[in-house]
Design a protein around this nucleic acid. Structure first.
Lengths: 213, 213
DNA sequence: CCTAGATTGTGAAGGTTTTCACAAGCTCGT
DNA sequence: ACGAGCTTGTGAAAACCTTCACAATCTAGG
């Protein structure tokens, strides 16, 4: 593997999503003991085409073997590196309501390299408790505690009317990535990446699919 | 592999998402008592351009007024109709675990026209209870009860290893839309639309953004 | 009524992503 | 060692999506 790990070129978001998908399936192939995987197999699992898979991968160099496919272990390692998963990310959850606490107890994050290191809430009744093995802090100490916990990513699960305030504070506290579950439009300083998960919007996409069948 | 139904109108998915966004902001404008809204204002709220807004809307005909903008009420009604939100959709949740029960108690769905009418789980300890005002049924009676409840959309919040089985059963029970929270790849019969919400994948997109800054 | 100012609707241009098609390269059985 | 059979990598073509630019059209105010 090339030593230069900082040289990650700009990739379109749909491509990143697909890479993430490929990694998921590759890990399944790896567990199944498959030494090599072809673009066609990856495409079938991921709902795309073999040409798409090859184009996506060729963006980072050619590490497949013609006639055989891709080495499973090698490709897993390469994708982890591209996606930045060759290290553990430290996560905080802001908002210990229904969604926040469900996420805190969700076992799937740690298994994929995302460790929940802190939870924040404004409700004094929740502060001081432990959720999923992690302490709940008062949101008043957000900035200092986030720095102390060395958090990289914040999950925002607060009521919409508070989302902007918290997002701004997170930016000031040095968090550069936010996974947002509030439905409010967020304005964040440059250098902060936000991804919004809007469940009502997903349902509306389904609704549209239902009426336009 | 995207299921291309013989749809009346082909709208690209990014367009549908934007329409959904516009509707959100339009409703805010409506509450604020604004009679008309310009494409520029909608664009600003939604993080896009006025040309994009006009292109999106012009796909369905021209119902703006030059020099003035769009009639708020009229556009809200039109978007609701396009998105299929001029009716109430009946939702069932399969899986009363952490995510499933958090969603069941989530108040935001009903407010946007999605009514949770049933919950299913395999755990006998959970069956018979009431979550968010809705009864938890044994997953054994999935098919018959779904027909009885006249459910349109299913939210799939079961462990990955059971997702495929349930998805197949949902398809047989006449559900044509699934919002999937499991991380497994689903194969569904033609005519069933699936949208996957994969939280680990969203975090991986953030991870990539962090390493490629 | 008429002018100034604002905004839509849309063809065309520009850009990006996906698909196609095929030469090149690898493995395996014989 | 060789040919058959796969599979990759990649230009080129096609499809798709976004932005541009401006005529057409509206309102408001005198």
């Amino acid at each position: 593997m090339p030593a230069s790990r900082a040289s990650v070129r700009k990739i379109a978001e749909p491509t990143v999503r697909r890479l993430s998908h490929y990694l998921r399936y590759l890990e399944a192939f790896e567990r199944a003991g498959r030494g090599t995987v072809s673009s066609g197999e990856l495409a079938h699992s991921g709902g795309t085409t073999s040409a798409q898979v090859r184009k996506d991968l060729s963006f980072f160099g050619s590490f497949g073997k013609r006639g055989l496919g891709y080495d499973t272990h090698e490709l897993v390692a390469k994708l982890r590196q591209i996606l930045g998963l060759d290290r553990a990310w430290r996560l905080v959850i802001v908002g210990a309501g229904k969604i926040g606490s469900a996420l805190a107890r969700h076992p799937g994050f740690r298994g994929r390299g995302f460790e929940v290191v802190g939870i924040f809430d404004a409700d004094p009744n929740r502060v001081g408790h432990v959720l999923g093995g992690v302490a709940v802090w008062d949101v008043k100490v957000l900035e200092s505690e986030i720095r102390h916990l060395r958090a990289d990513i914040a999950v925002l699960a607060v009521p919409p009317e508070e989302a902007q305030t918290i997002a701004t504070r997170l930016g000031r506290a040095g968090v550069h990535a936010i996974l947002d579950f509030s439905t409010a439009p967020l304005e964040v300083p440059a250098g902060v990446t936000v991804r919004s998960v809007d469940l009502a919007l997903e349902l509306e996409v389904l609704s549209h699919a239902l009426v336009s069948r």
